Simulated assay, not measured.
Amino acid sequence: MADTEQNVEHREQFSTAGAYVHSGEEYTRDTNYIEDRITRDGQPGKNGEPGWPVEAGRYRLVVARACPWAHRSTIVRRLLGLEDVISLGICGPTHDVRSWTFDLDEGAKDPVLGIERLQQAYFSRFPNYPRGITVPAIVDVPSGSVVTNNFPQITLDFSTEWQEFHRPGAPKLYPEELREEIDSVNKRVFTEVNNGVYRCGFAGSQQAYDDAYHRLFNALDWLSERLETQRYLVGDTITEADVRLFTTLVRFDAVYHGHFKCNRSKLTEMPVLWAYARDLFQTPGFGDTVNFEQIKQHYYIVHTDLNPTQIVPLGPDESGWLSEHGRHELGGRPFGEGTPPSRPASEG
């Protein structure tokens, strides 16, 4: 389907890269997502649209290894053992203004959906979809249409709505008794850290950058203090909060420190957070879902306004991620009463 001039303008403003530098402006993320949910009872949507019931094999989670927002969903899907229930489509690390593409697959087409661009699944449902074609996205396989790209809700629903299909020994990532505290921590982590690095990188003025920089590192100092005496962010087991922080920390030295000018300290120079991040990285479901090469390719090639040469740096050295972290001394039980996930045989 041909793009209208208006659609092209919107997709440039709300790029799949997530941002552009606008001179003199503070970076503001567009958070208007497709809010449909996949639920146990398949309740109708807000405007009376048909509901989306939980159903094994019906949906495909489309992600990119490079994207921190999509990375959350791959971690949670794996920790809960939903690999055989929700299939996984993986886009390549780079894209143009139109869409993420399936250039890693044979014939540059997703083998299940049969499409070259994620854009096609969005347009199948919304022919004039005016916003960015973002990952993660859940696609209804029978219709080939996008269901939702609401990344904060996707992982929560994996924990709460898909319980029937959780693997034996799956951890409780969003336990009811801790939800208020998890939500509070997640709110600050999102505004100051997850999105804070983007506010630094895409600041359009010195003042906007300075403000974002100080907010980011104030929050990282707060997290360091919190994690100095406890192994995980909330409670004594891994929760949704740890997943959300990890996907930013694991990208910090590779891209955010230099590319986004978040350069007061490297992660490796923040002892508590560096040990915490290594602890998670070495936990099944976390480090084995990381692809540093694709992460760097995405940021340094796609963000041409920040890196017009598109040169991808060779560093930093990744070997330190496997070094001893000493966090076991704080106690805690990574999976609570559960067990670690096994590595999926068919997914890298």
Rank of each mutant, 00 (worst) to 15 (best):
G338A: 02
R167N: 03
R278F: 04
V185D: 02
L306R: 08
G114W: 11
P168D: 14
S145K: 14
H298K: 00
T16A: 14
Y213N: 12
T134M: 11
V290R: 01
R72T: 04
R244P: 09
E26K: 09
T239F: 00
E177R: 13
L330T: 08
V243L: 01
S15P: 10
H325Y: 06
R78D: 07
L113C: 02
A170W: 05
T4Q: 10
F281C: 11
I34Y: 06
R37M: 04
E240A: 13
Q13P: 10
G287H: 01
H95N: 07
L178W: 03
P136D: 05
N194E: 04
R167M: 03
P142L: 02
A345G: 06
E116A: 13
G81D: 10
N291C: 10
H325I: 03
V85C: 07
F252V: 09
I86K: 09
W321V: 02
E164M: 08
A17Y: 11
Q282V: 01
R264S: 09
E293H: 14
T160W: 02
E318W: 10
Q206F: 09
N307I: 00
S87R: 06
H298Y: 01
D41Y: 11
Q282T: 05
I295G: 01
V135S: 02
T239Y: 00
Q119N: 13
E35F: 04
D84M: 06
V189A: 12
R278V: 04
P271T: 04
T160S: 14
V197G: 04
F292Y: 12
G57W: 07
R65P: 09
F14S: 12
F14Y: 14
E337R: 13
L273H: 09
R215N: 14
H303D: 15
H259L: 10
T339G: 05
G196A: 05
A137W: 09
R29H: 12
L104R: 15
G45T: 12
P50F: 03
Y256L: 03
A70C: 06
G18K: 09
Q120G: 04
V85H: 10
P341Y: 05
N7G: 11
L306D: 08
H259N: 05
T289H: 01
V139S: 09
K109N: 08
I138Q: 09
N7D: 13
G331Y: 00
S159C: 14
A19R: 11
A254R: 07
R199W: 03
F126Y: 13
T4S: 15
D105M: 12
L113S: 00
V85P: 08
D140M: 04
E228K: 15
E49H: 06
E35M: 12
L245V: 02
D279N: 12
T237C: 08
